[in-house]
Design a protein around this nucleic acid. Structure first.
Length: 534
RNA sequence: GCGCCUGUAGCUCAGCUGGUAGAGCAUCCGACUUUUAAUCGGACGGUCAGGGGUUCGAGUCCCCUCGGGCGUACCA
């Protein structure tokens, strides 16, 4: 066992005393695992599954993040004395059913329909196969969050013989497996169903064909392909794979999986796989059904529809920790996952993080940060809220870090990117938010003749005022307004609408001081030129 | 039909092991600014869907009703 795992065990295990009475859901889940161990302590296996026919998505993240939280809770409860593993299993022997429309080399992929994903060439040409490509993406994805896991490829597991024993057990229990599966299937599917999917020796296609005979002694199945040719194929060594639900059951058995969670949509599947698992002599893992994510309109998020938020989108606007917090909170509630939940998640995270460092261990363990960070000593915080930053960035028309930091310094006087690196990350996110949400909604109004005259005069007066104070600049702005407008409000409104393309804006003197005098003059010139062009 | 989730202030939601309801936003008022916005302070605002039950006491546990939502063929 690696040193970092020992360290992890010690770090989490230090909370053993307080973990006993902890009631957050990861602890409740971990207790189920402990209960199943009984009096025979042994290593414990957590599993998460992944289908490599597409890229990892927010559900994948959620599942690994949540499973890791249960694992951490388990380590804490057991004082780090019991080894744990988290297997990220990729079902990459599965056949390619259809060509995803968003990939290059569509024609080439079409020729490999039905083949195992590990035997389909990589349409991007960067990896050994399509599955290898997606597997690499999964690992990169998980690594970027710092998850600790063991990657496992179904293809490798099948071919290595690791599954052989459980596969033979499945063959022996064939009738039982069929008895479990058939009642759950439609009539036409019943006619052709087989738990075993032989790989065609010639075409390499993963075949969905009826089994016409089986030989338990020899460990083979006999079947006929579409052309009428009959084959006898071993169920072992990767010559055949299992249908999904039997596959899950076999995998649990072969790997000794103790815990695996799944989405609510898989409740029935888990039930059937569990029955099969028992039928082949295994013990189904402890489980947990988390709720699905909904989009803004309350509809289920799906990869194919592309509704809701992706991990990438979340990370454009906020931190991984805030996403982890979202996953931690209320896993059994169907939550809407769309942009509006992000600022709240960010600020809640920092709120928890702010308390965390000074909390006593018995309080720490009740803090979501404990689960998110894996019992870290402390957590970085931020002096001002993200919600405020988002207001600030749109109110101030800040398109650059330096301008936004200028405004920030009015609220957190001593803050700089160097002293507040965590805040600097939020600044980046706020600017992205500005670019994506504020900027597109800008509408620049042409200046009236009076406004044009006033703006030109302002530009003249500002000339040479570099380095002047916000107050001095504001005096000039005020003077120009007084000279041309009976109602001063109209002058300021014009500044925002003509120059910044928004109804409201920052106090103008302060804005110019931060934005730059020359830059402001350029802005005026550009605005007037825009009018001329229109 | 079955299963699960959900119904708390105008909106989005918190309310852990039961003790006479909270936050953010919105709205309104005020402070600060030689305009606003932002910021800060305050106010307004809920018979906790409805009805029973357990309890000294329930948003918080149990039952029922009503409303909203999702899953439930195949594929994974």
């Amino acid at each position: 066992m690696a040193a970092d795992e020992r360290e992890r065990g010690a770090r989490l295990g230090a909370f053993q005393e307080f973990a006993q009475s902890a009631k957050a859901w990861p602890f409740e889940e971990a207790r189920k695992v402990i209960a199943r161990l009984g009096d025979a302590p042994r290593g414990v296996v957590f599993e998460t599954g992944y289908g490599p026919s597409g890229l990892p998505h927010i559900g994948t993240f959620g599942e690994v993040a949540r499973t890791t939280m249960v694992r951490n809770a388990f380590i804490a409860l057991t004082g780090g004395t019991i080894p744990t593993r988290l297997i990220a299993f990729s079902d990459d022997m599965d056949g390619l059913r259809k060509v995803p429309g968003n990939l290059p080399n569509q024609a080439m992929l079409g020729e490999y329909l039905g083949r195992s994903l590990t035997e389909v060439p990589d349409p991007f040409g960067t990896h050994e196969s399509f599955a290898h490509h997606n597997n690499a993406r999964l690992r990169g994805f998980l690594d970027s969050f710092g998850f600790e896991y063991e990657f496992m490829s179904a293809t490798e597991a099948y071919r290595s013989g690791r599954f052989d024993e459980a596969l033979l057990a499945t063959l022996r229990a064939y009738d039982d497996v069929m008895a479990i599966m058939l009642p759950t299937l439609g009539a036409e599917r019943q006619a052709t169903y087989s738990p075993f999917l032989p790989i065609h020796p010639k075409t390499r296609i993963v075949c969905q064909v009826p089994i016409i005979a089986r030989d338990v002694e020899a460990g083979t199945i006999t079947w006929t392909d579409e052309a009428g040719e009959t084959f006898e194929t071993p169920v072992t060594g990767g010559a055949a794979k299992l249908q999904w639900k039997p596959d899950w059951a076999m995998r649990w058995t072969a790997l000794g999986v103790d815990y695996e969670m799944a989405g609510k949509d898989l409740i029935d599947s888990v039930r059937q796989s569990s029955r099969i698992c028992k039928a082949i002599g295994g013990r189904p893992p402890e489980g947990f059904n988390y709720e699905l994510f909904l989009d803004e309109n309350g509809e289920k998020i799906s990869k194919s529809r592309g509704n809701g938020l992706s991990v990438e989108e979340w990370l454009d606007y906020a931190s991984p920790e805030s996403l982890a917090l979202f996953m931690y909170q209320k896993p059994k509630t169907a939550k809407r996952l769309f942009f509006d939940v992000i600022p709240k998640a960010v600020d809640e995270y920092y709120s928890f993080a702010g308390k965390y460092a000074d909390e006593a261990p018995e309080k720490k363990i009740e803090n979501p940060v404990w689960h998110i960070s894996g019992a870290a000593e402390t957590a970085a915080t931020v002096p001002i809220a993200f919600a405020m930053l988002l207001n600030l960035v749109s109110a101030s028309n800040a398109q650059e870090r330096s301008v936004l930091w200028g405004f920030i310094s009015r609220y957190a006087p001593d803050a700089t990117p160097e002293t507040e690196p965590e805040l600097d990350k939020l600044v980046t996110h706020a600017l992205t938010y500005y670019r994506d949400f504020v900027l597109p909604s800008k509408v620049y109004r042409p200046a009236t003749d009076v406004e044009r005259t006033a703006l030109l005069e302002l530009s003249e007066r500002l000339k040479g005022m570099d380095g002047a104070s916000a107050e001095a600049i504001q005096d000039e702005v005020y003077a120009v307004g007084k000279a041309h407008f009976p109602v001063l409000r109209e002058w300021f409104g014009a500044l925002y609408q003509v120059l910044l393309g928004q109804e409201q804006g920052p106090r103008f003197g302060s804005f110019v001081a931060l934005y730059g005098v020359e830059e402001t003059r350029t802005m005026i010139a550009e605005a007037l030129a825009r009018d001329a062009a229109a």
